[in-house]
Design a protein around this nucleic acid. Structure first.
Length: 750
DNA sequence: AACGAGAGACAA
DNA sequence: TGTCTCTCGTTC
């Protein structure tokens, strides 16, 4: 019986079967292979092998050629990839496209030659390699089927243009007037090549015209040569060593976690454990939720043999890293989710820093929660799983048995709740204004976080209550006063504000509700005359450099400011409306608000800033718990109550939750598809009370599409995977999107 | 996702 | 009759 290879391409498909390439060895699991695809060729990943009965069922096509000598990813990572896809209820190819967005679109050089001695119609007998593009697709397919040709696929390496010497110095360059040209040519022979004419001129200390003259006379010429391997980012070698952590804070050798303390203390506690792993000859994968946290971790772990892998690397750098890792000794790879499948041959531990961070929820492709994927990877690799988190929420706690937790004391937050209930407090409370004036007088720094960018949440008529709405979405248009435009923050629609109210004709149009960053910044500029007011949000990113050096100023931004490097003179952090963070349509809202407040305290390393929250609920349990001194017991009690609430309502991790959303341009198409989907879920074994909905999505229309959703809530267990497996990508005219364990029950799935 | 086949819509 | 757009099915 012939063996087939299962090949996964980065498309919304399950693996497809091919026969191994006729020439060369059968590609290993985890290797990339080029396969015929709709007439052309594309790259896939070998994820399995299987025996096939010859001549039965579909006639399999032959893979063209393997691309890798050593597997691109380890067999354990392939196993994890397939499990991750099943967990996220997406075709395996979507998980591949999400986690390995590079390495499968490389330009290929595809060549064909007739088999030795074969008489091949249309080709010269015993011809040498021919570019596949010179043969028609039908002809090539026929030749393959007849077994008359062999094929070869080579990755086209990127090239760069360099200036190379062609001729030696000769009598044409004699004389004082040619001295510069002579010097440049001699220098170029020494260097063997230069990046450009300007670079050579600089290097040889001659005018650029001299080099251009050499090109014109043919002494030197531009050549395309293979680009040298790209450099890889390294952590700064002079990163300060973190203060050693107490021995009893070091997480255990097996599965476990480190809780409490400051981020850099948790990283310091991790350090001895990672050293131990490396000494035992094991590699470690450390995951960070985003670039800012990754940079911080890189600094703390700089004393280890460390490779960084994140969105900051380009594809060439990632490919180089993937080529190098299999043959390197025990190392630490520190990365974002893009590092999940890094080919570490002896993976001993997977560390998830800031394990509850919302940034770990991927928002496109396979909508993974990265810590879940990391747990599957650790399981598939036989590696230990280590989590770090300031407050262990329910999702983290279930993974960490009591004995496996190491705990540092929670940082003490200097917290002040400013009650917005009274009049005259909006949008900036007198307490906040007073503190800001102190900041100015003492030459310190402050950070203000507003719930949104732009000027106000809406623009409307004060007479009749009309507000400007987005034509594509069921949302108010946000008012941007700086450029006098109305914008939809969901679909990007933009228009000028009307001069009169379209409803009553009145002209008293005014910004309504929700002060955004522009509004807050404008108020501060008026009030703190001359004091620098910077803005930091998606619309405008002022350079924070002076503040990083310690110069005084205020930063007004969205939560994007949490990604700023530490501010040395920070004495005040304020949330202009804490209640927004509690109002999220998610059962994790309180927990995330708690974590965010603790994060605010870490915006400075040198100082312990006062954290002021403006709120209509100054007695909210999250605030009272953090205000306790020390807060540890109160926070633990609060988290215990949140855990109880989740248990009572069978929310994750005590139950499994999935959001299934159907979107279509036509409202009834979406609504009918949603009813059909609910029916289908029941047919697949979901009980009556486990299917919630269908109901219109909280924002019923977004980007011109109506969305209806169905929630599937099951007891913990594996029925979720069974019920969701192989759902069709569309139902009728509506597109189906599935989000297992959604973070935000309301948002539109892209 | 990307492609191609087939069905309708519309103009000449 | 041509051609443009949209929907639907397929990819070993």
């Amino acid at each position: 019986m012939p063996t087939a290879i299962e090949v996964l391409v980065p498309l919304p498909l399950e693996p497809l079967s091919y026969l191994p390439p006729s020439a060369g060895p059968t590609p290993a699991i985890g290797a990339r292979v080029a396969v015929p695809w709709q007439g052309g060729a594309r790259i896939g990943l070998v994820v399995g092998r299987r025996e096939v009965a010859a001549g039965r069922g579909i006639e399999l096509r032959e893979a063209i050629d393997g691309l890798d000598r050593a597997p691109f990813v380890t067999p354990e990572a392939v196993d994890a990839l397939l499990r991750i896809a099943r967990r996220a209820a997406v075709p395996a190819g979507v998980a591949l496209a999400t986690l390995l967005p590079w390495g499968f679109r490389d330009p290929l050089r595809h060549r064909v030659r007739p088999l030795a001695g074969a008489d091949v119609p249309g080709l010269e007998r015993d011809a040498d390699w021919l570019e596949a593009s010179t043969i028609s697709l039908e002809h090539l397919d026929w030749l393959r089927a007849q077994g008359l040709v062999e094929e070869q696929v080579v990755r086209v390496r990127p090239t760069v243009r360099v200036l190379a010497p062609v001729a030696q110095v000769d009598e044409g360059l004699i004389g004082a007037r040619r001295a510069n040209q002579r010097a440049a040519l001699e220098r170029l022979w020494q260097l063997e090549g230069a990046d450009s004419a300007a670079a050579l001129a600089r290097d040889a200390d001659v005018p650029e015209s001299a080099v251009r003259a050499l090109v014109a006379k043919g002494y030197v010429a531009y050549r395309e040569v293979e680009a040298p391997p790209p450099g890889l980012p390294r952590p700064s070698p002079d990163a300060p060593l973190p203060a050693p952590a107490p021995v009893d804070a070091v997480p255990p050798a097996g599965d476990g976690g480190i809780l409490g303390g400051l981020r850099r203390q948790r990283l310091a506690a991790l350090l001895p454990r990672l050293r131990n792993d490396l000494d035992d000859g094991r590699s470690v994968l450390v995951l960070a939720p985003e670039q800012a946290r990754l940079n911080e971790a890189a600094e703390a772990l700089a004393s280890l043999p460390l490779f960084l892998l994140s969105g900051e690397l380009d594809d060439e750098q990632r490919l180089r890293l993937f080529e190098e890792l299999p043959s390197s000794g025990p190392v630490v790879v520190l990365g974002t989710y893009l590092a999940l499948l890094a080919p570490l041959p002896r993976l001993g531990r997977v560390v998830v820093t800031e394990a509850a961070s919302g940034s770990y929820k991927l928002q496109a492709g396979a909508r993974l929660f990265v810590p879940d994927a990391a747990a599957l990877l650790a399981e598939a690799s036989g590696a230990a799983l280590t989590l770090s988190d300031v407050v262990a929420g329910p999702d983290t706690l279930v993974r960490l048995p009591e004995g496996a937790r190491r705990t540092l004391p929670l940082p003490r937050l200097r917290l002040h709740a400013a009650d917005m209930g009274g009049s005259g407090n909006w949008p900036l409370h007198p307490d906040l204004l007073r503190l800001l004036k102190q900041v100015r007088e003492r030459g310190r720094q402050a950070v203000l976080i507003a719930p949104r960018r732009g000027f106000s949440a809406a623009l409307g008529c004060e007479a009749c209550g009309w507000t400007a709405q987005c034509p594509n979405c069921d949302l108010s248009l946000r008012y941007h006063r700086q450029d006098g435009r109305l914008r939809c923050h969901q679909c990007g629609h933009e228009q000028a504000p009307p001069s009169a109210c379209p409803s009553c004709g009145g002209t008293a149009l005014a910004p309504l509700r929700g002060a955004g960053t522009q509004w807050v910044a404008e108020r501060l500029v008026g009030m703190l005359d001359g004091f620098p007011v910077l803005r930091f949000d998606r619309d405008r990113r002022d350079d924070p450099e002076p503040l990083l050096r310690g110069e005084p100023g205020v930063v007004v931004g969205t939560t994007a400011v949490l990604r700023l490097p530490p501010l040395p003179a920070l004495s005040l952090v304020a949330l202009t409306l804490f209640d927004t963070h509690l109002a999220l349509a998610d059962f994790r809202a309180e927990e995330e608000a708690l974590r965010m407040l603790l994060e605010l305290g870490e915006l400075s390393r040198q100082r312990r800033p006062l954290v002021l929250v403006q709120t209509y609920q100054p007695e909210h349990p999250v605030l009272t718990a953090l205000a306790a001194d020390p807060p540890d017991a109160a926070v633990e009690a609060l988290v215990g109550r949140l855990l109880e609430r989740r248990r009572r309502f069978a929310y994750p991790p005590f139950g499994a939750l999935a959001k299934l959303q159907l979107a279509a341009r036509d409202r009834s198409a979406a609504s009918e598809a949603a009813s059909a989907l609910a029916e289908e879920l029941r047919r697949r074994g979901a009980k009556e009370d486990e299917v919630l909905g269908p109901a219109p999505a909280p924002v019923a229309r977004l980007k011109g599409r109506y969305a209806y959703q169905v929630l599937l809530r099951l007891p913990a267990g594996d029925r979720m995977e069974q019920i969701l497996a192989g759902l069709p990508p569309r139902m009728g005219r509506a597109r189906l999107r599935v989000d297992v364990d959604p973070r935000d029950v309301g948002e539109l799935l892209e």
